[in-house]
Design a binder for these strands. Structure first.
Length: 455
RNA sequence: GCCGCGAUCGUCUAGGGGACUAGGACCCCGGAUUCUCAGUCCGGAAACCGGGGUUCGAAUCCCCGUAGCGGUACCA
């Protein structure tokens, strides 16, 4: 990718304002390419569709982009602000005869094809009616070739394309015309976008040629699918960046995972900080086949990133996610949970017992609170009661002789304690958990469990 | 229908004519971690879509087929 290449990024705001994962990956690839080549990023929010492109939707998408850590230098560019340029380009095409007014309806086109054969693109007859839609003349012979950075040359026979509509009867222009004009006039040299645009590219090339402009370089990314092989959508769980954020994923992990969806390193490196992604990523190395979004791998990757954070950063991230203050208490809780949690949201499951009463998990209780439990809890209570210092070492020293003494396996002693103080059968290390909870609260929860066992 | 795109373990991928007995990662399974596991470590199972070519030799190049995906709007 050449120096200082403006790389175009377009977004059609979804009706819900969600930044979809496929769009996020496209944005990331653009961003990485721009960073790598020292280029400029042009973010453009499509807004010819007024119903979908509310200010709120646009703001939500920009917010998600910011969370993901993708900054842009220019944008968003509104369609309305370009209307004058579009009208001017349209008039030039009309004047030169490259485009013409045609009043044919969809039914007329269908009838024309029934007559001329399905493989032939529609060719209309110019009419003297300024209120009719405008179509671009497409040659009958030859082919239009898309030089794609990822796929090489892709050839499309001109004959199979309709004289497509570039402006409606009311004069407003259509997407394939608008973007071609904008790419040319705004100096866009690199267009990195989804595969679903590949078949539309010849239309844009035709517009560019009719206008006498050089086309930009194109790279069409493979699409992203859900686990069922269909286009990724809300049905597949987290389908938007906003949902990923709520689920407690780290931006750096999401960037790493998304980068790997369609691209891989030749030395099998999987876990990469963003800086490494920037130097290693090349658009031309992107794969050619569709990928399926698999949240399980993202979870694993996220856990890796979480474990590598400093306790300060970790606590800050958890605090932000939970909407709590990053105080000493939270910091201590994070210290014992960091090696286990895979998501920010998962941290809470491990530490909530430090902030709230034990959760009620009947399955865990029934599984653990059996025959030997009362004896174990009583012994633990007695051992803990006399402790003057209550740190993990002291707690361990006090508890570790118990299994031998009462003739039970270690698990039969520790699991009842775990369930007594947390309510669940999974938690951070038992000694650390007790120490973090403190002596009084630990003792009173053990008492409460004992009382319940006896009733 | 027409035009186009790709096809390697369940998933993400490495692979560019011999280094392939096809490598890595997730998931899954087994073991370990004289406390849990959703953490960590070790081990295991698991793939070249099918058929023809080209070649001494094909996962790799070519053709056909197959199922899949995308486009085909006075949508973006």
């Amino acid at each position: 990718m050449s120096e200082d290449s403006p790389i175009r990024l377009r977004f059609a705001p979804s009706p819900t304002g969600a930044l979809h994962i496929g769009g996020a990956r496209t944005a990331l690839y653009n961003w990485l390419a721009a960073r790598h080549g020292g280029g400029e990023l042009v973010l453009r929010i499509e807004d010819t569709d007024r119903e979908r492109s509310t200010e709120k939707n646009v703001a939500q998408i920009l917010d998600a982009m910011e969370w993901l850590g993708l900054d842009w230098d220019v944008g968003p560019v509104s369609q309305a602000s370009r209307a004058g340029h579009h009208a001017e380009a349209l008039q030039r095409l009309l004047d030169s005869g490259a485009a013409y007014h045609d009043s044919a309806t969809a039914k007329d086109v269908e009838a024309w094809k029934a007559e001329h054969g399905a493989g032939r693109g529609y060719r209309g007859e110019p009419v003297e009616d300024a209120g009719a839609a405008v179509r671009l003349r497409v040659p009958d012979e030859g082919e239009t070739v898309v030089q794609d950075l990822i796929r090489g040359p892709v050839r499309f026979p001109n004959r199979s394309y309709d004289d497509f509509v570039i402006a409606r009867g009311d004069g407003s222009v259509l997407y394939n015309f608008a973007v071609a004009v904008d790419d040319a006039e705004m100096g866009i040299t690199e267009v990195v976008r989804g595969d679903d645009h590949l078949s539309n590219t010849p239309k844009q090339l035709l517009v560019l040629a009719a206008l006498g402009h050089e086309p930009p370089h194109y790279a069409h990314l493979p699409l992203l699918h859900g686990p069922d092989g269909k286009k990724l959508s809300k049905r597949h769980g987290a389908a938007s960046v906003q949902e990923l954020r709520e689920a407690g994923y780290l931006p750096a992990a999401v960037r790493n995972y998304l980068a790997l969806l369609g691209w891989g390193t030749d030395d099998d490196t999987t876990v990469m900080p963003t800086e490494e992604l920037v130097v290693r990523f090349r658009v031309e190395d992107v794969g050619r086949s569709a990928a399926i979004f698999d949240e399980k791998k993202l979870r694993w990757l996220n856990g890796r990133f979480m474990r590598e954070m400093s306790l300060e950063d970790y606590t800050a991230a958890v605090a932000r996610h939970l909407g709590r203050d990053p105080d000493e208490r939270l910091r201590a809780a994070c210290a014992i949970a960091q090696e286990k949690a895979q998501t920010l949201a998962g941290v809470w499951d491990l530490i909530r017992f430090l902030f709230e009463p034990p959760v009620e998990d009947e399955k865990a209780w029934d599984k653990v609170m059996k025959d030997g439990a009362p004896a174990a809890l009583e012994a633990a209570h007695a051992a803990l009661e006399g402790l003057s210092t209550f740190d993990p070492q002291a707690v361990e020293a006090a508890l570790s002789p118990i299994p031998d003494r009462i003739g039970a396996k270690p698990g039969k002693v520790y699991q009842p304690i775990r369930v007594a103080i947390t309510g669940t059968s999974v938690s951070p290390g038992i000694f650390e958990s007790l120490a973090a909870l403190g002596r009084e609260e630990s003792l009173s929860r053990i008492d409460a469990a004992l009382a319940r066992l006896r009733s």
